[in-house]
């Protein structure tokens, strides 16, 4: 009896967590795909006789998002510590919002003579070791969401430092490492809009002095450069 009651509770909690809660936050609207969806939403509503604008629709959706958060806090709040401790939960999208404004990660290195060499270009081109590393799912998770972000994610900068230091430590000839995204606008066949050239974003150029403290941990000293980690962030 006790087991069946506990299982009932588990099924209820996980079942309601999995519901498609409309958790829209203002920062979600900064993405190009969100703006496209708003535009289509306004058109659809117009077709059924509901007149609204993109801004009004966004405000309404944000209000729904805030309400949704409040309800979830009441429903799931007591169980959050258990979910956090076990790293469990139910939030599944599986490409719920495929991004037509995707980012193409590109890594280049500069030699002592100043020449730049492309080392990685998504998807899958470049040095085999670099390709394997950057396409490993856990590494990809740090950067794959940054292409269309107005501001790169916090861990993106850390990843750039780490990757830059890793390359600089392994290759003494390399002077600088450049990591960037090229914003790709994916157009469907028949799309009459003019092609949009790829636009560089979140360009990070890492030299030895930038990551001296990381290089020191890897056994390489950089004279006249700070040797401790910058005191920031989570």
């Amino acid at each position: 009896m006790l087991r069946s009651l506990l299982i009932g509770l588990v099924v209820l909690v996980h079942g309601t967590i999995a519901l498609p809660w409309p958790d829209l936050k203002p920062r979600d609207l900064q993405y190009g795909v969100a703006q496209d969806e708003l535009k289509r939403g306004v058109t659809l509503l117009e077709q059924v006789g509901i007149h609204t604008t993109k801004d009004e629709l966004a405000d309404d959706l944000l209000a729904v998002g805030r309400g949704s958060k409040r309800v979830q806090k009441v429903l799931h709040g007591p169980f959050r510590p258990i979910l956090r401790a076990t790293g469990t939960g139910q939030s599944w999208g599986l490409f719920a919002y495929p991004d037509p404004y995707a980012g193409r990660l590109i890594v280049r290195t500069q030699d002592a003579d100043g020449a730049w060499t492309e080392r990685y270009r998504a998807p899958g081109q470049g040095d085999p070791d670099m390709v394997a590393l950057l396409q490993y799912r856990r590494v990809r998770g740090i950067y794959d969401d940054n292409g269309d972000r107005p501001k790169a994610g916090f861990f993106y900068d850390r990843m750039c430092d780490w990757l830059g230091a890793r390359i600089l430590a392994a290759e003494p000839d390399v002077q600088q490492v450049e990591i960037r995204f090229d914003l790709v606008t994916i157009r469907k066949p028949g799309d009459r809009r003019p092609a949009v050239p790829e636009e560089p974003r979140h360009v990070r150029t890492i030299s030895r002095s930038d990551v001296a403290w990381r290089l020191r941990l890897l056994g390489q000293d950089v004279p006249d450069a700070p040797t401790v980690a910058p005191p920031v962030g989570p």
Partner: peptide, 27 residues
Amino acid sequence: AAGMNKVATLWLPPDWSALFVAMRDPA
């Protein structure tokens, strides 16, 4: 839940271009 969350117009008719867009994503 994955099905229910797929409310983007790319997943719905008449667009149905979600897989096309996902496959073209360089990541």
